[in-house]
Nucleic acid binder design. Structure first.
Lengths: 80, 80
DNA sequence: GACAATTTGTCCGTATGTATT
DNA sequence: CAATACATACGGACAAATTGT
């Protein structure tokens, strides 16, 4: 039996962002902190790690990004 | 009118893998070529780029990876 | 228009760890 | 132990888009 794997940083960032969205702290349309600020917030040494989390959340449609502007929470109806 | 954006490499890799799965070329359970071989196949200079595509496809559940073994096409449950 | 600052977007290279054979 | 291959993290280099001066 393998021991419980630790969540990698990027997955924990994904989970945290999802929770902030779900809790309403970051409502639809909210602009997330900059990649640099998020790297600081999550205490990861590189923006690349944050980027990976954001790229996945953009891919799944939960966030969307605009170059030069920021990354935002997708505006979607809470149909679920 | 902005010109048509070029797809970044990782998105084209995602699209290609999805198409191979959809076409049946890579059926459920099929083992994908190694990351290194895929980097060669798609002519990207680094395995990191391939990895990003694969990570996203794993995150979306279309692929799954086993360390030391390979990356495989997800076996869809025929529940629907 | 030009320029700089900020921020997102992509790609590359490397290092290290983990799992299988 | 060694070879192979996946998994994660980091850091740097540019490009592209926006905003402000």
């Amino acid at each position: 039996m393998p021991a419980q794997r630790f969540e990698p940083h990027y997955r924990r960032i994904i989970a945290d962002i999802r929770q902030r969205i779900a809790s309403g702290e970051w409502p639809p349309g909210h602009k997330l902190p900059s990649t640099k600020a998020l790297a600081d917030l999550y205490e990861v040494g590189s923006q690349s790690t944050v980027r990976q989390a954001i790229t996945i959340l953009i891919e799944t449609g939960e966030l969307y990004g605009h170059q030069g502007l920021g990354v935002f929470v997708t505006d979607r109806s809470p149909t679920t």
